[in-house]
Design a protein around this nucleic acid. Sequence first.
DNA 1: CTTGAAAATTTTACAGTGTCAAGATATAGG
DNA 2: CCTATATCTTGACACTGTAAAATTTTCAAG
Lengths: 220, 220
Amino acid sequence: MKPKSLQVSDPSAQETAPAPYHHGALREALLVAAEEILLERGVEGFTLRNCARRAGVSHAAPAHHFGDVKGLLTEFAAIGFDRMTALMRQYVVTANRDGGMPLHALGRAYIDFAMLHRAHFQLMFRYDLLDHTNAHLSEAGGAAYAELESVIEAADPGGSGNETRRLLVWSAVHGFATLLLEGKLDAFYGHKDRKRIAQEAGDALLGMLTNPSQSERSAA
Amino acid sequence: MKPKSLQVSDPSAQETAPAPYHHGALREALLVAAEEILLERGVEGFTLRNCARRAGVSHAAPAHHFGDVKGLLTEFAAIGFDRMTALMRQYVVTANRDGGMPLHALGRAYIDFAMLHRAHFQLMFRYDLLDHTNAHLSEAGGAAYAELESVIEAADPGGSGNETRRLLVWSAVHGFATLLLEGKLDAFYGHKDRKRIAQEAGDALLGMLTNPSQSERSAA
DNA sequence: CTTGAAAATTTTACAGTGTCAAGATATAGG
DNA sequence: CCTATATCTTGACACTGTAAAATTTTCAAG
């Protein structure tokens, strides 16, 4: 019925996958379509049928790759954790090389990831939408936390209050990213756009967080 | 069809409202039913028709009181902000009277509220599910933030880094409550139940947060 | 009391959703 | 070439939110 001659699967530009089956890369196409929809209409506006429609397949096609809608969103979230871990590692490595503070870099990576992959981030922490028996998801989530843990441990080896310190860093950074994406901070930084809030307020927050002793003196 | 003789609208116990119409208190009954469903099945499992069914009315009855599903959830969230503000004020007043730290009390109220009114809390920060043009919601949300603001300002009048300090406190407390409710902390405090995590880890967090100078020494 | 208007609720209808079962189709391996 | 299997489509079902048209109940006035 619908013209299938879209530029999605240009037969002359297939380097990654060998274009094996009907669609060729339905799995990836569905994940791409999912991100588009999530960015345009938010989590609540997401629909499996619409996602399939956008990928150019019938409404029941996704079932074969993801089982059900939860399966698709779970895979999407797991990919998010993978990317987040990668970004954190990258920032920390750079900080260690350039003499920066690893803890600050970690927090910056967390916030940047939330801004950069908004759709993923919002899904990653939506317990009810995810299948927590999924192997990829739990591995990816565990790896992300392990990175967080190791950086804080490295920052203060054997520190007695490290468990609480870890909790504080995680809570603060996560809370900031969440409030930012939910638009709760817009009202109080109305004159800046959200990217600048993430940058400036985020830096101020991280400064106070990683250097608690001069909390009464910073922020000129 | 269904027996309407429930104890919901006992004709001998009407002091607040004059019990005017058919159901008498459909509005309140729907909000109660909504909370039940949200606690049992989570935000994703919430359904307007099911909510009406549980309140003993037809599926289209809620429309008259709330317009649409967004209207109902918005009212529900607004009530949440009202209760949260009340709890914060109560905790802070008690702290001021008994020589406690108001800032600590504020954070404790925030966390306790999240545990006590889980369904409300989770909805209050779900931007996509709420109607932000709603007057009750914006007033209630504003009042809650004003309380937060005033306590932090009172704790350090004219402090230069107060904007950042406010952001840190809010982010940390909000992030902790969120991670707690999303089950992300269960894995790391597995031996305790969630109530104890909220109490003990929450206190440790608030201690480090309100007393940043001895962050290297606490948590025996 | 009656009466009539307004509010509350139900009934009916429609487009859209997720999932399941069964049928169609193409690809790979023999 | 042939067929087994993974991939995809079609069709159906129960359910959803919303809108409009009945219908019922309440309330206030006459």
